[in-house]
Amino acid sequence: MIVAAVLFGYTALLCTLMPRLLRGARWAERAPRLGIAVWQVLGVSSLAGAVMAGLALTVPTVRVSADLASMLQACVMALTAQYASPGGAAAGAAGAVLALAVLGRTAWCAGAAVLQIRRERRDHREVLDLVGRRDAVRGVVVLDHAEAAAYCVPGRHRRTVITTGALQALDDEQLTAVLAHEDAHQAERHDAVLTWAQTLARAFPRVPLFRTAETEIARLVEMRADDVAAARSGRLTTAAALLAVAGGRTPAAGLAAGGSTAAQRVRRLIEPHRPLNRARIAAGSLTAAAALALPLLVLGGPAAAAMQLNYCPDGTPPSQVTTMR
């Protein structure tokens, strides 16, 4: 029971406290790739904490044995002892419902999101093949439209799309920056990152962590793509390019260089560049790794201790079996 309580408390703290501490963090803007990883780790760790808390309530920890028959006997005896009392049965049932509900809801929403995104991308690619024309030199699809817009359609049959309005508004260096931005989205699979964040936000819409993570990750993936473009074309050139395409509309199936965060990102690009040093990046990475491993360590500690216990001594009746949750 103590293990389950610790995991419940850990998950609750992640879901309520961390969004307040990390929302709009300046360090994440200075190292957007690390910020994206941290938000992803927090989401995975909170899910793992909830599922493992349910498992800790449902299944008692038993001694691991090389003898399969003895190990199975230990499992049966431990389960019998736990579910013999009404309280133990109720806790076990609640834990099972929690674990299955979290896993089932996440899997259902993830599957629905993937199917929807694939359908939207397929439909949009068919439209592009009909109304757009391929530019083999630039490797893009050109749309005849006065609005300056640029975006990519990720996936196996990826497309990078730019309008004639954008071609007229951008000079060669700015166009290179915009295309580098879209290439970064596709090379680093930002679409998959966003899909996972959106899945958690839709699966558990009342959890502050997941709502905040969806917004923050959407902002940080654009900043990360900006940094890739700036490394190639310069920060001021990239800022000017973003201004030129900031008002362009983006289909649901695409990722765009413009968008609602363009103004904030332009200010970031024209300010003095102050990336995080290696020591801070290493510290952040270690902290994220610890958060990811903590639920396993909390559940694994009692499991390791249980390996020293003998659940199946000769002649020991089931009523004397010690269980741990």
Score class of each variant (00 low, 15 high):
Arg134Cys: 06
Gly234Ala: 13
Leu57Ile: 04
Val127Phe: 08
Ala149Thr: 12
Ala90Ser: 11
Pro318Trp: 10
Ile162Tyr: 02
Val6Leu: 15
Gly111Met: 06
Ala291Ile: 06
Ala136Asn: 08
Gln264Tyr: 07
Leu167Lys: 14
Ala28Asp: 09
Leu236Ser: 10
Ala169Trp: 03
Ala306Leu: 05
Arg249Gly: 15
Thr61Lys: 01
Glu182Asn: 13
Ala184Pro: 07
Gly300Asp: 01
Val221Asn: 08
His157Arg: 15
Thr323Met: 06
Gly139Gln: 02
Glu271Phe: 06
Val41His: 03
Ala69Ser: 14
Arg20Pro: 03
Gln186His: 08
Ala107Trp: 09
Ala93Arg: 00
Gly9Cys: 09
Glu222Met: 13
Ala148Val: 12
Leu34Trp: 10
Met324Asn: 03
Ala229Tyr: 03
Val245Thr: 15
Arg202Asn: 04
Ala257Trp: 00
Arg138Asn: 13
Ile2Pro: 06
Leu200Glu: 13
Pro208Ala: 06
Arg232Ala: 13
Ala112Ser: 13
Arg23His: 14
Gly165Ile: 10
Leu72Ile: 05
Leu55Gly: 07
Thr11Gly: 15
Ile270Thr: 10
Ala306Cys: 02
His190Lys: 05
Met18His: 02
Glu173Ile: 07
Ala177Thr: 02
Gly254Arg: 06
Ala149Arg: 05
Gly301Gln: 05
Ala184Tyr: 08
Gly132Phe: 06
Gly248Val: 11
Arg224Gly: 09
Leu42Ile: 00
Ala240Gly: 14
